[in-house]
């Protein structure tokens, strides 16, 4: 039997082990910088109430972005999250208005979200189509279904009990924030501690090698899109609770916000890389930007500009921090 002959060479292993947290640390540093700037520039920014407000405003995007992160890690993209959210919102709200207990109505909405994701995944795996094209197609299709089902009209009259639950507090934190934190913990557990998470990273990192190593490619991808659909639906539930109504046009441009949060957080659109903590921080960065600029009475046009610039800046920093080659 062969034995270990060489002493392990020093150093590189240690730094590579730090790499992932290091990237998250960079995202955190970015957030701290933005908070510091607004603390000086925007009066009323650095108050407990406003900070909680930011978290609450970021929670919907964070929820969608967590699902998006899993899909991006698997080497795909999900452009259909907004319409999936709209479909689920319309279904759940209609059921609640019709007198179905909110718990069942929510479950139905979540199940529909997961089912929409399963359709995306199946088209990608068995139809042999590009994720971008498939979800671009279902982006329109799901939106159309939501509009057709409601005739384009919002659904009003969501029960007060449901609204109170969603808008309530748990231990001083808004319910939506608590839900997102729990989802993030679960997503982190899935990505780091389960075979499914390993498969996601492997499929996104090198699909052909994963295939040779016996990874169930189709199941893994479909699972990722189902989780993305499920979390888009969950985000829709939070929004329905907040608004007290479900609009078939809700979720417009959610996909872009979610992709932005994941990318700022360090997910690689090439697949195989992504961070749950990073995505959370990315969503909060986007939320804090918007909140701070609003407090400073900056026009919406310029807010959009700032969002665009922050994404480009984050990506450039990322690129140069990793160096060329």
């Amino acid at each position: 039997m062969l034995t270990l002959t060489d002493k392990a060479a020093p150093a590189p292993g240690a730094t590579t082990r730090l790499r992932v947290p290091l990237r998250d640390f960079g995202t955190l540093l970015g957030l701290v910088l933005i908070v510091l700037v607004f603390a000086v520039a925007a009066p009323g920014f650095l108050t407990e109430r406003n900070l909680l407000n930011i978290l609450q405003q970021s929670s919907i995007n964070a929820c969608v972005a967590l699902g998006m992160t899993l899909v991006i890690v698997s080497g795909g993209i999900d452009l259909s999250v907004g319409p999936v959210a709209a479909l689920s919102a319309v279904l759940s709200a209609s059921l609640m208005v019709a007198g179905v207990p909110p718990v069942l109505a929510v479950m139905a909405g979540l199940a529909l979200g997961a089912a929409c994701g399963a359709v995306n995944g199946a088209l990608i795996c068995f139809g042999g189509l590009q994720p971008f094209i498939v979800t671009l197609g279902t982006l329109s299709t799901y939106r159309a279904l939501a509009l057709i089902a409601t005739d384009g009209n919002p659904i009003f009259g969501v029960p007060q009990s449901f609204r109170a639950l969603v808008n309530g507090n748990v231990g001083g934190l808004p319910m939506a924030v608590v839900v997102v934190l729990v989802v993030a913990l679960l997503a982190g557990l899935i990505l780091r501690k389960t075979p499914f998470g390993e498969y996601l990273l492997a499929v996104g990192g090198n699909e052909e090698a994963a295939h040779i190593a016996g990874v169930p490619i189709a199941l893994t991808k479909i699972g990722a899109y189902m989780l993305s659909g499920l979390l888009a639906a969950l985000a829709a539930m939070i929004l329905v609770g907040r608004l007290g109504a479900a609009e078939p046009i809700l979720g417009n441009l959610w996909e872009l916000e979610a992709i932005a949060a994941a990318a700022i957080g360090g997910a690689s659109l090439m697949g195989g890389k992504g961070s749950i903590l990073g995505t959370l921080l990315g969503a909060v960065i986007l939320g804090a930007m918007r909140n701070g600029l609003t407090l400073m009475n900056v026009q919406a046009f310029y807010q959009l500009l700032a969002t665009g610039l922050i994404i480009l800046f984050a990506m450039l920093v990322d690129r140069f921090a990793r160096g060329r080659a």
Partner: peptide, 9 residues
């Protein structure tokens, strides 16, 4: 590189 390893893992 193509069929064996998942490079970043």
């Amino acid at each position: 590189k193509r069929d064996g390893i998942v490079p970043h893992r």
